[in-house]
Design a protein around this nucleic acid. Structure first.
Lengths: 208, 208
DNA sequence: ATTTTGTTTAACAGTCTTGTTAAACAATTC
DNA sequence: GAATTGTTTAACAAGACTGTTAAACAAAAT
């Protein structure tokens, strides 16, 4: 048994599991369905991952990790002007969501539905979160002092950005249903949304 | 058997089902669990509602209906100035979510997870949606002509409002985890959020 | 009082789903 | 090449869950 094929089976299961869990959630996912999609018997799936729960946690953990790894570094170069940095992180966050459109709904659902999973998130973000918020507030204060922007609470600004960026993807199919014409061209719609989100945030903080 | 108690059983099942479906979703919900919470045997549940699917659809339908009924009228008095009307609908929408905090996640999940349910939403909103968007755009145009606001696309503005209001409730427990202190007092946090959302929308459209 | 109608219970059937196991098989090591 | 280790298959066990049914029971109608 070659090393390639050994990995390949595990990999095929992981790929199929990711698809299944992201689209159907833990409760909706079926290990038999995952095994079938991966082209292995369902006994194989249990051989590699023991239980559905363990397989799920592997996926969830990877996804939380991906999110943290991509988003915290996106906070960008501390030497750039605040407004540039802010624009860049909104943009980076939005682009990340374009590449991972199913992720927000998955994380919100699967973490919220089981309070015991809160700590997974807590442990992954609390190390960064405090520092990020502190840094954000410091930057805001400095920028306010320079007379560039209005005083705002960093956490509120953060929630604003998250709301605008994330909602687009969580509700995408609903929006498509409600306003078909506007969204006929996905690429175009997303480009407009991204620009709009940046515009909204800038309007909120720029001096009038 | 009195009319009261007859209704009471059906009612108890509906109340328990609403709780179960809203917190766990269709896949996570268990008819035995609903029956237990309602204090009836699970055969009773099937006697009244035949299948889990039918019971679920009763709840889903009622929730979609509640949302439509509350939100479209909230569009308010056409004689008021546009900015007042807009403020009022953002506020009414937010207040509605305070009373129904589980609803957005439920609707997004359960409708999105089964494309065959799109048409339920479609049929419920399409009759209003077109008219609402037309009216909104007309009002915007008039207000722009009066020199009150900047020109914006009505649908984009609509998405902005939805994003800001809905996200707060979809992600509430996650936000609590990430920024505990700010959210210690729920009432206070929600009041601040509501004001912030109105402020964000106003900043976006008011002339500078 | 008897029949009819509607409600409730308890037991059960059938299916789906997760997880296990024994045995076959392949690869690697000694 | 024999033994050991790891992989795969097929069959099965156990339980959970939905949904059914027959019979008991209660209420209302005749």
């Amino acid at each position: 048994m070659s090393e390639f094929e050994k990995q390949s089976n595990e990999q095929k299961i992981l790929v199929a599991a990711e698809q299944e869990f992201l689209t159907k959630g833990f409760d909706g996912a079926r290990t038999t369905s995952i095994a079938k999609a991966a082209g292995v018997t369902h006994a194989m799936l249990h051989y590699y991952f023991r239980t559905k729960e363990q397989l799920f946690e592997r996926i969830l953990d990877e996804k939380v990790s991906v999110m943290s790894k991509v988003l915290f570094p996106a906070w960008g170069d501390p030497n750039l002007p605040f407004l540039n940095r802010l624009t860049m992180i909104i943009s980076a966050h939005f682009d990340f969501l374009v590449e991972n459109p199913l992720l927000p709904r998955f994380l919100i659902n699967e973490i919220l539905s089981r309070p015991e999973r809160y700590e997974l998130l807590q442990s992954r973000i609390s190390q960064y979160a405090g520092a990020v918020f502190d840094n954000l507030q410091t930057e805001i204060t400095k920028s306010v002092e320079k007379g560039e922007i209005l005083p705002v609470d960093g956490k509120m600004l953060f929630i604003n950005v998250m709301s605008l960026n994330v909602f687009t993807f969580i509700a995408y199919p609903l929006l498509e249903t409600a306003m078909g014409d506007l969204m006929a061209d996905r690429e175009r719609f997303l480009a407009i949304r991204k620009a709009e989100n940046i515009e909204v945030i800038m309007s909120r903080i720029l001096k009038r």
